[in-house]
Design a protein around this nucleic acid. Structure first.
Lengths: 349, 349
DNA sequence: CAGATTTTGTGTTGCGCACCTCAAAAATTG
DNA sequence: CAATTTTTGAGGTGCGCAACACAAAATCTG
């Protein structure tokens, strides 16, 4: 056992480094802030002193002295499903946190599902923003708008839905094909050898994330679970009423329906239809995003598993990445990686 | 769309608040730092101004002015399994981060599984520490040591393994009974209706977390999956060799063995035995903690699911909670809640 | 070796706040 | 109303650093 704590810790300051290196404060400042006009030999001396004393800049003091403030825009969908509502709330909370760190977030609500509207919103964003987080659409105009922002020196991160071919600096969200594969494995194993059909319900196939999820789902199901065949993908447009009708029709038409994978929203419709049919217990239903509704269906046993992305984590991660990018600090990749959560009735948070 | 960003943001400062409230800086300071000697009427005036201007203390400036430094001890097990090694590494990383925020972490390696050694280590901890994170043992002496630290004004959080009846201020870790229930549900559903027996392997039943997990596991398995019967719990002492032999014996003795739930370490032994028996594919194996080894077994298909707690998250959370506690700031509960992760081959991070 | 150039030192300012002292003003009391 | 107590104001200091100006020294030119 190593008990090395004895007295209150005194951090090494810039002055300590200067003394140790036998140079002045100004020179140390030049070295640590990578300004030029210092001989290589002197740089080495200073760096040796930094290493020896374990000097690390006091972030609080540095931020204070620099006096920079950061202004970020979060572009989120207008009044939408539970997940998006939750995300907005988490972004608002994150804004509260950031305010203590000289960062400010404005939330802009736009119709992110219309490429022209979204691109227009990005184009008209005030030049005061050093960073933008956006739920992207992988569309040429949107890509162009992102690229232009980046060209102007704005840090852009995509949130939840990516635009991989744009020049955004970071994507904050889950690996959607992997999420689909995860759903497929759960479906295949929960149905362990039973024969029948499985339905896939998406919000819209023009959304990149939904497409990727169903792609991953089909990939695994067709290659590993020959006992199950999938029906053509149905588009529920993330609307509960429409989804309920579609689900009811599915149940009526396919007596051998064993599973439903929903890679979008509209879950209340599915629950209604399933419960009305009396087959809620026997049909395995897997969906995305933990909300107050899906949580209820999970507890009740109608829903079997939820694949989730943590909205709070995403909001905080986006803010951290933007902040780090703007102040030239490194990010730690594995803290910023958004996990694909699996929730059963038993491990609900 | 609300584009309200126009110019670089100017935060309201204490001085702004003073001006708005028509009082002096000193009075504002008295109010915001809850010092006494201010009339209730004046307090109200100042608070109104704070609210109106949306004043929030600049954390960087406040920390700098306060000049406090924090010193924390993390008490971790001596050279141990992969999970603990990983945890140590994550704590070391967290220390690096904390150093930028005037916080310092010393890691003390002790045999946390011996109550006397652990309690002794806690008792002999330098009084310089304002906070301690410890992998606790729910034992009277350990409890007493924790209580004494708390009585001395030290913030104590338990990490990974709790001592619920002690006076620790926070537990950073997962809900272990729930983790066991989660494993049981996966086991039951993956075995969907097949008849047979399931084995449970623990490290040691004197470890609270292992006991709780197997309790949760049995609870669900016995009440919901009548087709499966469990064998008496086996203690593998988190040792691979011993666990391999025990698993091999199990496989030899029980031809109807359908599943293995391991709620401790020693996974390499299980993998060896399973693969040697040729029944790796048919026996459902579920274990805890994602490590380089369990990851490999998962990808290979020998292992079916991993219940995980994120060591990085736990290390950071413990540091944040200690920091918040020592500087009187609130914590946000849902950021500090450690989730029960489920990993399949498909959603590995 | 004088002059030009590069490198280093000295010094100052201010970021926003906490914390302190001392005096002035206001409210309360006998 | 004077004496006392409570409340408020004015002012200062320093936290550790960034940023800058300017002077002094060292080094490099021709």
């Amino acid at each position: 056992m190593t008990d090395s704590a004895t007295q209150p810790v005194l951090r090494a300051t810039l002055e300590d480094v200067a003394r140790a290196a036998g140079v002045s404060l100004a020179t140390v400042d030049r070295v640590v802030n990578r300004r030029e006009g210092v001989r290589a030999k002197t740089v080495a001396r200073v760096e040796a002193a930094v290493a020896k004393l374990g000097y690390r800049a006091d972030l609080a003091a540095a931020r204070l002295a620099r006096g920079q403030t950061f202004r970020f825009a979060f572009v989120l969908p207008t009044g939408s499903n539970s997940f998006m509502t939750n995300l907005s709330e988490q972004v608002a909370r994150t804004a509260g946190w950031l305010a203590g760190h000289r960062g400010f977030i404005d939330i802009h609500h736009v119709d992110v599902f219309d490429p022209d509207v979204l691109a227009g919103a990005l184009e008209n964003l005030s030049p005061a923003y050093q960073g933008v987080a956006v739920i992207a659409l992988d569309h040429p105009r949107v890509r162009a708008a992102i690229d232009e922002l980046v060209a102007r020196g704005v840090a852009v991160v995509t949130l939840v839905s990516d635009a991989p071919s744009s020049s955004r600096v970071h994507y904050v969200g889950i690996d959607n094909p992997a999420a689909g594969r995860t759903a497929a494995t759960l479906m295949g194993r929960f149905l362990a050898g039973r024969e029948g059909t499985v339905a896939v319900i998406a919000g819209s196939l023009s959304l990149r994330d939904h497409t990727e999820r169903q792609f991953g789902f089909h990939q695994i199901l067709s290659s590993e679970y020959a006992n199950l065949s999938t029906l053509p993908v149905i588009e529920g447009r993330d609307d509960s009423d429409r989804t309920r009708d579609l689900t009811a029709a599915l149940l009526a038409r396919h007596a051998d329906l064993r599973g439903i994978y929903c890679c979008g929203a509209g879950n209340r419709g599915i629950a209604d239809a399933l419960e009305a049919s009396g087959r809620a217990r026997e049909v395995v239903w897997i969906t995305h995003e933990l909300t107050e509704h899906t949580r209820r269906f999970l507890v009740r046993g109608t829903l079997d598993a939820v694949i989730n992305q943590d909205a709070g984590h995403e909001a905080r991660s986006a803010a951290r990445v933007l902040l780090a990018h703007c102040s030239g600090e490194p990010i730690s990749p594995d803290q910023e990686r958004i996990r694909i959560d699996i929730f059963l009735r038993d491990n609900l948070p």
